[in-house]
Design a protein around this nucleic acid. Structure first.
Length: 799
DNA sequence: CAGTGAGCGAGCTTCCGCTTGACTT
């Protein structure tokens, strides 16, 4: 039996280290934290110095009992969790839970998984740092107090099951604030002037640095240029250089994979996890840009052999984010000589990105020669400017160029970074074309998942392990949606001078289209406004930064953690109490005006089933007329909907005719417009306006749907019409009314299924909710009487 | 998704960070 038990956080890490240490060591993993606060109210005793009640969660029981057994058999237990606040706490929880004794326990730390680093760590053991543990407890207790006191306030004042927390509420606030900036933004137009000189190979562009806000001025400028002489007034050439970016951290990997590969942050992390488990890359949850000495040597060797000596440049990077704890290396390939790997295509692509970025980070800078040519206009006092750039040495650009978040329009001006033909001072130029194009200023960009992570990191909010889950949480809670939105057409004016004539025209462009951007929902905005109004301190962008500063002081032993929490908690708790007692229910109600025909008041607000418009006041007794209601549609918001748009909502649902003795109705659901007929639903094709559907069209669509459904049918049962065997997207399945059942693998031919077999399969489905990534299946058939609507909605939102 | 916008008023929801698997139409 091994004399030593060494415990790390990750099983993949354990495997690697076991290889370095030999027979005397058993290396095991704790799989992260092994204990957490109990779920109930009494997890923290407010009146007893915030003492905590911890428990081992069910899914950790097995790990803990195995570690307990091994610890008993070992002479020495080495606690090798990460060197940061959470890692120290993991060691402490292990110490307590496994019942370790101080003389037989060693705490060791390393920042990189290399043999020398591990050996050095083993030679320098220490004891558990209780200051650091206290800092973690303060963090944990504060998050629990905030989350579990704030959320119930929302249940009372907004809607059940909502949540609030130190991290998620600020993430939502960022998105709500940004959306409002975009909505109130007024685009300003100005004419941008671009000249084209020379022909063929010698052609190049020059731009006027200033823009004209009035069309007359732009026109006058072009007019003046008809007879003007263009001369090179000055020519300046300067060397320029560009340096590579630091190797990836979690946050920069998520950003770059989003820009270059179009991955969501969750997908990036899933793929990176697989690369890590296969041993291709180092740990993927890190805030460090540091590379180990071993890695630096390996990178150098690879660069020199693949590209030559002059492409290598030794570089050390320093972290920019304030809250970085740097318990790991930067994300890099384990072996730099693997330029590519075997695996699925998304794994290959992410690996190559990581390899290129890490290699480039140790390469020399790219060198350019930048030329600025100023061109005088004989009839005007302004100069035109042409920028040229020639690469003299590619350096790191040989392998990698970092992506940019900017859209093309905001990037460098026309003619910039282009290659200029040979030019000389005093040279007279031949104008081919001169254009003045109306350009509009752009609103601030909405957040993508990745740019939100970047912003959170800048604010020091959240950790590498929580960025992806936080983004999921705010979407799952329905505060935020990731969506595509169509843009709208916009006219812009363009004046062109060519061959001595000025041509004026109006062109059309598409603007404001968004893909994969984060939009706040109405509930997100209402919850945010409620928190900003009543709990300003918690959703302040600097709240985390200021508590982090205090956690640091606790970690250094300069402050008592219970005192810190007490100072925070007492006033916070008072706010919670007074908000519960005095605050009104938050519905986001807004008056739209009066109904044009009836003169009744129209308003919008959030109800139990989402945002809706109401016409007329709430009745005070039964004799009064009931108000009319209509739900808002996807993409509409109570904040921005107009009176006209609200009136449109009452035009549907609409009866379009009768078929087979049953009415056909057109309405709009969550997935768009549809026709309902005899409890069947047919979605409407995009081309058809739901307001102009004719009876004939509706019948046609219903028949087409029936035909399509018949094609899917493999087998029907005369004894029960609700049971069918169908061919679905993922192969055959059995449909029982609304319940779908997968056909087990041992049935190879679905045609052989008997009715009895089908029924047995349906009965075998668990009666309670079956939670999977794709929602609930069995639960949909037998909804629990009252909870059903809320549950169904929550699941639908997840999709 | 699929016609509501309360109600008997039970018992439930919820935080952030550290880790992987086991889930499925």
């Amino acid at each position: 039996m091994a004399k030593n038990l060494l415990i790390v956080e990750s099983p993949a890490k354990a495997k690697t280290i076991e290889g370095y240490l030999g027979k005397d060591f058993t290396v095991k993993s704790s799989y992260g934290h092994i204990r957490d606060l109990v779920k109930s109210e009494d997890a923290i005793d407010i009146n007893n110095n915030f003492s905590q009640r911890y428990e081992v969660p069910a899914d950790k029981k097995q790990v803990v009992s195995e570690l307990k057994k091994l610890a008993k058999e070992a002479d020495i237990v080495w606690l090798a969790s990460d060197e940061d606040r959470e890692g120290e706490a993991i060691s402490w929880h292990l110490f307590e839970t496994l019942g370790l004794k101080e003389p037989d326990t060693r705490r060791i730390v390393f920042h990189e998984i290399t043999k020398p680093a591990i050996m050095k760590a083993i030679e320098n053991p220490r004891k558990i740092d209780y200051n650091l543990v206290n800092a973690q407890q303060a963090r944990r207790v504060l998050d629990r107090l905030v989350g579990f006191e704030l959320s119930p306030v929302l249940w009372k004042k907004v809607k059940p099951s909502l949540s609030a927390g130190r991290v998620q509420s600020v993430a939502v606030r960022l998105i709500v604030d940004r959306e409002r900036e975009v909505n109130k933004f007024k685009a300003e137009a100005a004419f941008k002037v671009v000249a084209l000189f020379g022909k063929g190979k010698d052609a190049f562009k020059a731009e006027l640095p200033e823009r004209f806000s009035k069309q007359e001025d732009a026109e006058q400028f072009l007019q003046d240029c008809i007879k003007a002489i263009f001369e090179i007034k000055s020519l300046e050439t300067k060397p320029a250089k560009r340096s590579p970016a630091a190797p990836f951290t979690t946050s920069t990997l998520q950003q770059e994979a989003s820009r270059k590969l179009g991955y969501s942050v969750a997908r990036t992390m899933q793929v990176a996890q697989r690369l890590y488990e296969s041993g291709y890359i180092t740990y993927m949850r890190t805030d460090s840009v540091n590379l180990s000495d071993t890695a630096l040597d390996a990178a150098q060797k690879e660069i020199v052999s693949a590209y030559g000596d002059k492409y290598h440049q030794h570089r050390k990077y320093k972290t920019k984010s304030a809250g970085a704890q740097e318990a790991h290396e930067a994300i890099r390939p384990t072996y730099f000589n693997n330029h590519t790997i075997d695996g699925e295509s998304n794994e290959k692509r992410l690996y190559e990105l990581i390899w290129k970025r890490a290699i480039a980070s140790q390469m020399s800078e790219a060198q350019f020669e930048k030329t600025v040519a100023k061109i005088s206009i004989s009839t005007r006092k302004e100069d035109l400017v042409a920028n040229g750039e020639v690469m003299k040495f590619d350096g790191f650009l040989k392998v990698y160029l970092e992506g940019s978040d900017e859209d093309e329009d905001n990037q460098t001006a026309d003619g910039d970074n282009a290659i200029l033909p040979p030019l000389s001072k005093g040279q007279i130029l031949d104008l081919q074309e001169l254009s003045a194009t109306e350009r509009f200023s752009r609103p601030p960009a909405r957040y993508t998942e990745a740019s939100l992570v970047k912003k959170l990191e800048e604010l020091g909010i959240g950790r590498p392990s929580t960025y992806a889950p936080t983004i999921s949480t705010i979407q799952n809670r329905g505060y935020v949606v990731k969506e595509e939105r169509e843009g709208r057409q916009r006219n812009f004016r363009m004046l062109t001078l060519k061959g001595g004539n000025i041509v004026k025209e109006t062109r059309i462009e598409n603007t404001g289209a968004e893909r994969g951007k984060l939009f706040p929902t109405d509930i997100g905005a209402v919850v945010n406004d409620f928190l900003v109004l009543h709990f300003q301190g918690i959703v302040d962008f600097n709240f985390t930064a200021s508590v982090e500063k205090q956690f640091d002081e606790i970690a250094q032993g300069l402050q008592d953690w219970t005192k810190m929490i007490r100072t925070f908690y007492d006033p916070f708790h008072k706010d919670v109490q007074s908000t519960i007692e005095t605050a009104d229910k938050a519905t986001g109600e807004r008056e739209l005006g009066v109904h044009p025909e009836s003169g009744k008041k129209m308003s919008v607000r959030i109800g139990r089933y989402g945002p809706f418009v109401q016409v007329g006041e709430n009745p005070t007794d039964e004799s009064e007329e009931k108000p009319l209601y209509a739900s808002l549609r996807t993409g509409q918001s109570i904040e921005t909907i107009s009176l006209e748009e609200a009136l449109e909502l009452f035009k549907l649902p609409k009866v379009v005719g009768e078929y087979e003795g049953k009415v056909m109705k057109v309405a709009i659901g969550r997935f768009g417009p549809y026709i309902s007929h005899n409890s069947a639903f047919v979605s409407l094709p995009k081309e058809i306006d739901p307001l102009d559907v004719t009876e004939e069209q509706a019948i046609e669509l219903i028949e087409a749907k029936r035909k399509k459904d018949a094609e899917k049918l493999i087998k029907a049962f005369p004894e029960d019409e609700t049971v069918k065997v169908l061919n679905g997207r993922w192969g055959p399945y059995i449909e029982f009314g609304k319940l779908n059942v997968k056909i087990p693998k041992d049935i190879t031919d679905p045609l052989t299924l008997t009715y009895e077999q089908c029924k047995a399969l349906a009965d075998a489905m668990p009666k309670d909710a079956k939670k999977g990534r794709f929602g609930k299946t069995a639960a949909a058939a037998k909804p629990a009487a009252k909870k059903a609507p809320a549950k169904k909605k929550a699941v639908a939102k997840k999709k």
